[in-house]
Simulated scan of single mutants.
Amino acid sequence: MKFTTILFVFSLSILSTATAQLNISPDALNYFNEAFKQVKTQSFKRKELDFKHLYNQSLEQMKGAKTYRDTYPAIRYLLAALQDNHSFFTPPPANGASIISQLSSKPGGIPFSASIIDGHYGLLVLKSYNSIDNADQHRIADSLYAALHQMQQQHVKGLIIDFTKMEGGSTLPFLCGFAPLIHQTVLLGYKDNKGHRTQIVQYKNGIYHKHRNKTTRLCYLTNYTPLESLPIAIVTGKYTASAGEMILISFLGLPNVKTFGEPTLGVPTGKTSIFLADSAFISLASSTTYDRNKNDYVTAIQPDVAFELTHLSEQELYAIAINWLNEITVGHP
């Protein structure tokens, strides 16, 4: 115990000397240390990286730091050094605006389009959407479910879901809206840097976060009837990212689903929001994802049928999907 105490005091002495040499003020150092502690504790790459080395290298980026703002280059350096391709730093918004409103999509919009193509096939084109407003997420989920229900009423033979414009944001309203179509209890799973697993599951008209025996409702549908199981062709591309990849994972492994296009961007990782003392914001990749069959996802998700989207028009792309849907419909999988 005595040796440990001496070693701890010695380490503090070295750190104090180092920061003095770098001419960093106590306020700036405390601010950065809090950010560093949160990142080190919660990053899903915690066990893969030498955080002591990262700390020392980050301090070099804030020589002469006196204010919180002077530490921003060091925080950006730290997040880039994680090499998770997903974490980012956002400084405080100007004029006292809310960081949440700055990061949220404009309220009132619908982040997808729905149509019938070729007379018999439903087409959904998903778009990026980001909000933590429960009422708005509920509105989006209801709208998505209503579009799917209307397609069912029109007796479509199959669905095409285009993920190529879905670059990220919020997963919940999409998972909730699609749940009656997926017909599975487990929609998506997350695994943190300690190996703890949690799941997003479907139950009745809602989706829930499940951890061991505890469940918490995340989103719900006003009206709910299970939808008919249809063949589903999913199109992905290099801009399908983050939330887009997680929504995609909820469909993977289903016997009536086939994916087409290009590999996704490769950031299917869950995020943690870290708010700092001056309202600056770190969006940190804190968990990996897995599907209902316990397959883990950390990098790009490969399509079942791969081709370069730049070589195809939108019409040609959807024609490929329709050809497969027609094969399934007439009984030739």
Score class of each variant (00 low, 15 high):
1 M>G: 06
3 F>D: 15
11 S>K: 15
16 S>F: 12
18 A>G: 08
19 T>Q: 07
20 A>H: 05
23 N>F: 11
26 P>Y: 11
32 F>N: 05
33 N>Y: 10
35 A>H: 13
37 K>H: 09
37 K>L: 15
42 Q>R: 15
46 R>C: 07
46 R>M: 07
50 D>C: 00
51 F>D: 01
52 K>S: 15
54 L>H: 02
54 L>C: 02
55 Y>P: 10
58 S>W: 09
66 K>R: 01
69 R>V: 14
80 A>R: 10
82 L>R: 09
82 L>E: 14
82 L>F: 14
83 Q>R: 05
90 T>Y: 11
92 P>K: 01
95 N>R: 06
97 A>R: 14
99 I>Q: 02
99 I>K: 03
113 S>A: 14
119 G>E: 11
119 G>I: 08
123 L>Q: 02
134 N>W: 01
135 A>Y: 08
139 R>C: 08
142 D>L: 02
143 S>K: 04
144 L>K: 00
145 Y>S: 00
149 H>C: 12
150 Q>F: 11
153 Q>P: 09
154 Q>H: 07
155 H>N: 14
163 F>A: 01
163 F>C: 00
163 F>I: 03
167 E>H: 08
169 G>L: 05
173 P>K: 04
174 F>M: 15
175 L>N: 00
175 L>E: 03
176 C>W: 04
184 Q>H: 06
189 G>A: 05
191 K>R: 10
193 N>D: 04
194 K>F: 14
195 G>E: 03
196 H>M: 10
197 R>H: 12
198 T>S: 13
199 Q>W: 10
200 I>Q: 09
202 Q>E: 02
203 Y>V: 03
204 K>M: 09
206 G>D: 06
218 L>M: 08
221 L>A: 00
221 L>G: 03
222 T>E: 12
223 N>P: 08
227 L>Q: 00
239 Y>M: 13
243 A>C: 13
244 G>H: 02
255 P>T: 12
259 T>H: 08
265 L>E: 13
282 I>V: 06
283 S>W: 10
285 A>F: 07
292 R>F: 12
292 R>S: 13
293 N>F: 13
294 K>W: 11
296 D>I: 13
298 V>D: 08
299 T>P: 06
301 I>D: 00
306 A>W: 08
308 E>A: 15
313 S>W: 02
314 E>F: 11
315 Q>M: 09
316 E>I: 08
316 E>P: 08
317 L>P: 05
320 I>R: 14
325 L>W: 02
325 L>G: 03
326 N>I: 03
327 E>R: 08
331 G>L: 09
